[in-house]
Computed example of a mutant assay.
Amino acid sequence: MNILEQIINFADQQIYIKRWSVGVNQQAPIILLHESLGSVELWKAFPEKLAATTQRDVIAYDRLGFGKSSPLAQLNLNFVTDEASSTFQQVLQHFQLEQFLVMGHSVGGGMAAVCAGVYPEQCRAVITASAQTEVEDVTLAGILKAKHSFNNEKFIGRLAKFHGDKAQWVLNAWTDTWLSPTFVDWNINDQIRQIHCPMLVIHGEQDEYATLAQPQRFVDLAAGETELQILKDCGHFPHQEKETEVLNLIHNFIKDI
Rank of each mutant, 00 (worst) to 15 (best):
E208Y: 11
E83K: 04
A173N: 06
Q27M: 15
N151F: 06
E208Q: 14
I59S: 04
K44S: 12
M199F: 04
N9A: 11
W178T: 06
V184N: 15
L4G: 09
V201L: 01
C123E: 00
T139P: 12
S86N: 15
E121Q: 15
P120R: 10
H105I: 13
F95L: 05
F237W: 11
E83I: 13
I7F: 15
V24Q: 10
N25K: 07
L72D: 08
K242P: 04
W186S: 05
I30C: 01
A60Y: 02
E48S: 10
N25L: 09
V135P: 01
I3E: 12
P120Q: 11
Q229E: 10
L92G: 04
F150I: 07
I257A: 02
G204E: 03
D256K: 12
V91M: 04
Q168M: 11
E35G: 03
T133F: 01
G23W: 10
W43K: 04
Q214E: 10
S180R: 07
K145G: 14
T139H: 13
T175Q: 00
V114Y: 02
P47G: 05
S106W: 03
F10Q: 06
D176C: 05
C115W: 03
C234D: 08
Q191K: 12
V22N: 03
Q14G: 10
H148Y: 14
V107C: 12
A52W: 11
V114A: 08
R63S: 03
G67A: 10
E241K: 06
L97F: 01
S86Y: 13
S36E: 13
N25A: 04
Q99M: 14
S21I: 12
A51S: 09
L33T: 01
A213Q: 11
L32S: 00
L144R: 15
V24H: 12
A60W: 01
P238T: 07
G108V: 05
V138S: 12
S36I: 07
L247I: 00
P47H: 05
Q122M: 14
N248K: 11
R56Q: 11
T226L: 08
T81K: 09
E35I: 00
R193H: 08
Q13R: 14
H34K: 03
D185F: 09
G38S: 03
L140N: 13
N172H: 15
D190Q: 14
E98H: 13
A28T: 09
W186L: 03
L64T: 09
E121G: 13
S39H: 03
L200F: 01
Q99D: 12
I30M: 00
G109P: 01
T53R: 14
A141V: 12
Q122I: 06
A213L: 14
Q93H: 12
Q55E: 11
S130T: 08
S130H: 01
K154P: 05
T175M: 05
N151L: 06
S180K: 10
L64S: 02
K145Q: 15
F253R: 04
V24P: 10
D185M: 06
I195A: 02
W20N: 02
L72G: 05
Q240S: 14
H203T: 13
D165W: 11
G38Q: 02
M111P: 00
Q26W: 13
K44C: 08
T81R: 10
K161M: 12
I143L: 06
A141T: 15
G109F: 00
V80L: 10
L249W: 03
N187S: 07
S21Y: 13
R56V: 00
I15C: 09
N252Y: 13
